[in-house]
Simulated scan of single mutants.
Amino acid sequence: MLVVIDAQNDTFDKRGTNYAEWSEVIEEGISRRIDQAIDNDEPIIYTKNLYPDFEHGERSAESIRFDEAVYPVFYDRLEKYGDEYTKNFYGIPPEEARKIYENYKDKVKTNQMIEFVGVETNICVLANIMVIQNIFPEAMITVNKNLVAASSDDLHDKTLEILANMNVFISE
Protein backbone atom coordinates (compact mmCIF):
# COMPACT_ATOMS: atom_id res chain seq x y z
CA MET A 1 0.00 0.00 0.00
CA LEU A 2 1.19 3.50 -0.81
CA VAL A 3 0.22 6.53 1.26
CA VAL A 4 0.85 9.90 -0.42
CA ILE A 5 0.80 12.80 2.03
CA ASP A 6 -0.32 16.27 0.92
CA ALA A 7 0.78 16.26 -2.74
CA GLN A 8 -0.86 19.64 -3.20
CA ASN A 9 -0.20 22.95 -4.90
CA ASP A 10 0.54 24.43 -1.48
CA THR A 11 4.04 22.92 -1.40
CA PHE A 12 4.68 21.65 -4.94
CA ASP A 13 3.63 24.65 -7.06
CA LYS A 14 5.84 27.74 -7.16
CA ARG A 15 2.71 29.83 -6.58
CA GLY A 16 1.77 27.84 -3.46
CA THR A 17 1.77 29.49 -0.07
CA ASN A 18 4.30 27.03 1.39
CA TYR A 19 6.26 26.21 -1.76
CA ALA A 20 9.83 25.14 -1.18
CA GLU A 21 12.54 24.11 -3.62
CA TRP A 22 12.92 20.68 -1.98
CA SER A 23 9.54 19.72 -3.44
CA GLU A 24 11.16 19.75 -6.89
CA VAL A 25 13.72 17.22 -5.64
CA ILE A 26 11.11 14.64 -4.62
CA GLU A 27 8.44 15.31 -7.30
CA GLU A 28 9.80 12.95 -9.96
CA GLY A 29 10.47 10.16 -7.46
CA ILE A 30 6.96 10.40 -6.05
CA SER A 31 5.57 10.27 -9.60
CA ARG A 32 7.57 7.11 -10.32
CA ARG A 33 6.45 5.53 -7.04
CA ILE A 34 2.78 6.27 -7.82
CA ASP A 35 3.24 4.71 -11.27
CA GLN A 36 4.85 1.64 -9.68
CA ALA A 37 1.90 1.29 -7.29
CA ILE A 38 -0.53 1.53 -10.21
CA ASP A 39 1.43 -1.03 -12.26
CA ASN A 40 1.49 -3.43 -9.29
CA ASP A 41 -2.21 -2.89 -8.49
CA GLU A 42 -1.18 -1.65 -5.06
CA PRO A 43 -3.77 0.26 -3.04
CA ILE A 44 -3.08 4.01 -2.95
CA ILE A 45 -4.31 6.34 -0.23
CA TYR A 46 -3.67 10.07 -0.40
CA THR A 47 -4.33 12.86 2.02
CA LYS A 48 -5.66 16.25 1.13
CA ASN A 49 -5.09 19.01 3.63
CA LEU A 50 -8.05 21.38 3.87
CA TYR A 51 -7.36 24.67 5.57
CA PRO A 52 -9.26 25.36 8.80
CA ASP A 53 -11.76 28.19 9.04
CA PHE A 54 -9.38 30.60 10.75
CA GLU A 55 -7.20 30.60 7.61
CA HIS A 56 -10.11 31.99 5.62
CA GLY A 57 -9.87 35.26 7.52
CA GLU A 58 -6.18 35.63 6.71
CA ARG A 59 -6.23 35.13 2.93
CA SER A 60 -8.52 34.85 -0.04
CA ALA A 61 -10.76 31.89 -0.80
CA GLU A 62 -9.10 31.69 -4.23
CA SER A 63 -5.65 31.32 -2.63
CA ILE A 64 -6.91 28.62 -0.30
CA ARG A 65 -8.66 26.69 -3.11
CA PHE A 66 -5.46 26.82 -5.15
CA ASP A 67 -3.29 25.56 -2.28
CA GLU A 68 -5.74 22.77 -1.40
CA ALA A 69 -5.83 21.36 -4.95
CA VAL A 70 -3.80 18.27 -5.72
CA TYR A 71 -0.72 19.26 -7.71
CA PRO A 72 -1.42 18.62 -11.42
CA VAL A 73 1.58 16.29 -11.87
CA PHE A 74 -0.09 13.85 -9.43
CA TYR A 75 -3.77 14.70 -9.87
CA ASP A 76 -4.91 12.37 -12.69
CA ARG A 77 -3.25 9.28 -11.24
CA LEU A 78 -4.33 9.90 -7.66
CA GLU A 79 -7.88 10.81 -8.70
CA LYS A 80 -8.23 7.66 -10.83
CA TYR A 81 -6.32 5.11 -8.75
CA GLY A 82 -6.22 6.50 -5.21
CA ASP A 83 -8.60 6.99 -2.33
CA GLU A 84 -8.68 10.53 -0.93
CA TYR A 85 -8.87 11.20 2.80
CA THR A 86 -9.18 14.78 4.00
CA LYS A 87 -7.76 16.42 7.09
CA ASN A 88 -7.79 19.92 8.55
CA PHE A 89 -4.67 19.65 10.61
CA TYR A 90 -1.67 17.37 10.69
CA GLY A 91 -3.13 13.89 10.95
CA ILE A 92 -6.09 12.08 9.50
CA PRO A 93 -9.03 12.64 11.89
CA PRO A 94 -10.75 9.71 13.66
CA GLU A 95 -13.72 9.51 11.26
CA GLU A 96 -11.38 9.26 8.26
CA ALA A 97 -9.18 6.75 10.11
CA ARG A 98 -12.24 4.55 10.67
CA LYS A 99 -12.99 4.69 6.93
CA ILE A 100 -9.42 3.65 6.12
CA TYR A 101 -9.67 0.76 8.55
CA GLU A 102 -12.99 -0.43 7.11
CA ASN A 103 -11.83 -0.03 3.50
CA TYR A 104 -8.46 -1.76 3.93
CA LYS A 105 -8.66 -4.12 6.92
CA ASP A 106 -8.96 -7.18 4.67
CA LYS A 107 -6.12 -6.04 2.39
CA VAL A 108 -3.65 -5.22 5.15
CA LYS A 109 -2.35 -8.45 6.56
CA THR A 110 0.45 -9.15 9.00
CA ASN A 111 3.70 -7.76 7.57
CA GLN A 112 1.90 -5.95 4.78
CA MET A 113 4.10 -3.04 3.74
CA ILE A 114 2.62 0.45 3.89
CA GLU A 115 4.96 3.03 2.36
CA PHE A 116 4.70 6.77 2.99
CA VAL A 117 5.80 9.53 0.60
CA GLY A 118 5.09 13.27 0.61
CA VAL A 119 5.49 16.35 2.76
CA GLU A 120 6.43 17.51 5.39
CA THR A 121 8.45 14.79 7.06
CA ASN A 122 8.38 16.34 10.53
CA ILE A 123 4.73 17.37 10.49
CA CYS A 124 2.12 15.63 8.31
CA VAL A 125 4.15 12.58 7.33
CA LEU A 126 5.00 11.90 10.98
CA ALA A 127 1.44 12.53 12.18
CA ASN A 128 -0.14 10.29 9.56
CA ILE A 129 2.33 7.48 10.11
CA MET A 130 1.23 7.47 13.75
CA VAL A 131 -2.44 7.29 12.71
CA ILE A 132 -1.90 4.45 10.22
CA GLN A 133 0.45 2.59 12.55
CA ASN A 134 -2.30 2.61 15.18
CA ILE A 135 -4.92 1.44 12.67
CA PHE A 136 -2.73 -1.37 11.33
CA PRO A 137 -0.20 -2.20 14.08
CA GLU A 138 0.91 -5.42 12.39
CA ALA A 139 1.82 -3.74 9.10
CA MET A 140 5.40 -2.91 8.18
CA ILE A 141 5.43 0.89 7.92
CA THR A 142 8.09 2.22 5.56
CA VAL A 143 9.35 5.67 4.59
CA ASN A 144 11.60 6.22 1.61
CA LYS A 145 13.80 9.03 2.88
CA ASN A 146 14.28 10.27 -0.69
CA LEU A 147 10.52 10.66 -1.26
CA VAL A 148 9.69 12.76 1.79
CA ALA A 149 10.92 16.24 2.56
CA ALA A 150 10.71 19.06 5.06
CA SER A 151 11.50 22.74 5.00
CA SER A 152 14.22 22.02 7.57
CA ASP A 153 16.88 19.42 6.75
CA ASP A 154 17.66 19.11 10.45
CA LEU A 155 14.03 18.35 11.38
CA HIS A 156 13.74 15.97 8.41
CA ASP A 157 16.75 13.96 9.63
CA LYS A 158 15.65 14.02 13.28
CA THR A 159 12.16 12.87 12.34
CA LEU A 160 13.54 9.94 10.33
CA GLU A 161 15.64 9.00 13.36
CA ILE A 162 12.59 9.15 15.63
CA LEU A 163 10.53 7.10 13.17
CA ALA A 164 13.26 4.46 12.99
CA ASN A 165 13.03 4.17 16.79
CA MET A 166 9.28 3.63 16.45
CA ASN A 167 9.68 0.52 14.28
CA VAL A 168 9.29 2.39 10.99
CA PHE A 169 11.63 1.07 8.31
CA ILE A 170 13.58 3.88 6.60
CA SER A 171 14.55 3.01 3.03
CA GLU A 172 16.30 4.72 0.11
Rank of each mutant, 00 (worst) to 15 (best):
K109Y: 03
E24C: 07
A7F: 12
E27N: 03
K48C: 12
A20G: 10
I38T: 04
Y81P: 03
L50M: 14
M130I: 10
I162M: 10
E42M: 04
Y85R: 00
S23L: 01
K87H: 02
A97F: 01
R65K: 15
P94Q: 11
E84T: 06
I170V: 09
N122R: 07
I100H: 04
S23N: 06
I92A: 04
A164P: 11
L78S: 11
H156E: 02
I45K: 02
E68D: 09
L50I: 14
Y90N: 02
L78P: 14
E68N: 05
F54K: 14
P43T: 00
N146Q: 08
E79Q: 00
M140N: 15
D41S: 10
E42G: 10
P72Q: 13
V70K: 15
Y19A: 11
S31M: 11
N146C: 01
K80C: 01
G16Q: 14
D53T: 13
Y51N: 02
A20Q: 09
S63W: 04
K99F: 01
K107A: 00
A7I: 00
D13P: 10
E161M: 12
K14F: 09
D153Y: 13
E96T: 08
Y71C: 05
R77N: 15
L126I: 07
T110W: 03
L50R: 06
N128A: 10
Q112F: 13
A7G: 06
E79S: 00
N103V: 05
K48T: 15
F66H: 11
I92L: 07
E28N: 12
D153F: 07
N144W: 08
G16A: 04
S151R: 06
V3A: 04
I114V: 15
A69N: 05
V108L: 06
I26S: 10
G91K: 05
L160D: 02
